[in-house]
Design a protein around this nucleic acid. Structure first.
Lengths: 225, 225
DNA sequence: ACCACAATTTATCATTTGATTAACTATGCG
DNA sequence: CGCATAGTTAATCAAATGATAAATTGTGGT
């Protein structure tokens, strides 16, 4: 509990590593992965070679940052939430996105994800494929039911349907981009906004789906079988 | 017209400058603004100091790239398109976004914009404030009419309404991010997708607006006057 | 043809940057 | 107290990077 005593602190390896990782997350989120190890060390109040005591290379530290930020936060109960037909789908989607945004709407998450994407790091693909499988697919399945269309057992999901779920998601996530990438103001009442957006979605998308299927079927009948 | 003759070409300053700017756009879009002048020169097949003959510093070249990519492409007729009440709003929005995406859905535009945003360059703010003023505000004005709500002359636009236009925009732009930042596949039939998304918007948003106003008015009546 | 000027390159500088080595110092154990 | 162990730093390297100066080479005008 010796706080600002004298100059530098001597920590246990666990504490020091934790401290380095936490600061690295903040640091790389701010400046990107080209951020220099000397600057990071400076922010930590340690010397630069000490970083190499804990991580063999800058790259390994970056790798660690990815893991800390993304591979530790998925909430499996979201999947159950979506398919719980005891509540209206609108209510479920509002709850889902209000929770989801509470997790990922933060400086580090959004910016590191964007930096990683631009750099071509495949963690973005891995993460988004999980989102598609675990969130968008079930959402579309539920949408079929709400729209009074055949279940996905009978007629397999089409890419166009998935895109409508991506669209809902993208509209919401774009808020985070506006805030933490473009540094623009976004509404304070995020929960209210999500309510309205989901309401529009529920109001408009099932109709669009029926419209899409009707169009599709008149132009190109479903393959028999 | 002497093509691959021998080794290096001697160009007029105009040609060389053009060539440098074009390649710089591609280059910085790919690797970000930390891309090195030597690498850029290599891609151009020229030596690195020659860049400094045309641009006093790397920063000035970057500045030039911004101007080329963003300050030369706004289409004023979009604004007229939106408010043309001789066509249904749905049709206008479809036309608008089909045109708009044709302009900005490309590698350089999307990635440089993102790099600039992350770096904190204010061109992103400048550009998006234009988009808000010239596209979102008129769209919301038209929405009022479609929703059967009082015109914006009588009841000023509310932030919550603008957010619904941002949401439409964000959902569409997110496609570009998926493709050029995350390197994920997106639907081939972009025009069809836009039709569906706008259809959902027109189907759902006016109703949501009325809902929002009704709620708002019961909870907190409009200030008299 | 020749010459002047401008386009381009070669050589080089000063910093920066990831990484390494060796020295220093705090803490725990006997 | 003293010594070993491990946490931490000072000093330094080699490569990379933005930028500059001087030398070279191509081209157009007279």
């Amino acid at each position: 509990m010796e706080a600002e005593k004298g100059k530098r602190q001597r920590l246990t390896p666990e504490q020091r590593e934790r401290q380095i990782v936490d600061e690295a997350i903040r640091f790389f989120a701010e400046v990107g992965f080209e951020g220099q190890t000397r600057e990071l060390a400076k922010r930590l109040g340690i010397t630069q070679p000490l970083l190499y005591r804990y991580f063999p290379s800058k790259e390994s530290l970056v790798e660690r940052v990815y893991h800390e930020v993304y591979l530790k936060r998925w909430q499996p109960h979201w999947e159950a939430l979506i398919i719980d037909r005891s509540r209206p789908l609108e209510e479920r989607l509002i709850a889902l996105y209000q929770e989801y945004t509470r997790l990922i709407f933060n400086y580090e998450w959004v910016r590191i994800f964007m930096f990683a994407g631009l750099k071509g790091v495949n963690i973005t693909k891995r993460y988004l494929s999980i989102v598609e499988d675990k969130l968008f697919v079930p959402v579309c399945t539920e949408l079929r039911e709400v729209a009074g269309l055949p279940s996905t057992d009978k007629v397999p999901l089409q890419p166009e349907e998935l895109e409508l779920a991506w669209d809902l998601h993208g509209g919401i996530y774009y808020l985070a981009i506006r805030k933490w990438v473009y540094n623009l103001p976004i509404p304070e009442d995020l929960d209210g906004h999500i309510e309205r957006v989901v309401h529009s979605f529920i109001e408009g998308t099932p109709e669009t789906l029926r419209w899409h299927f009707a169009r599709r079927d008149t132009q190109r009948p479903l393959p028999h079988q």
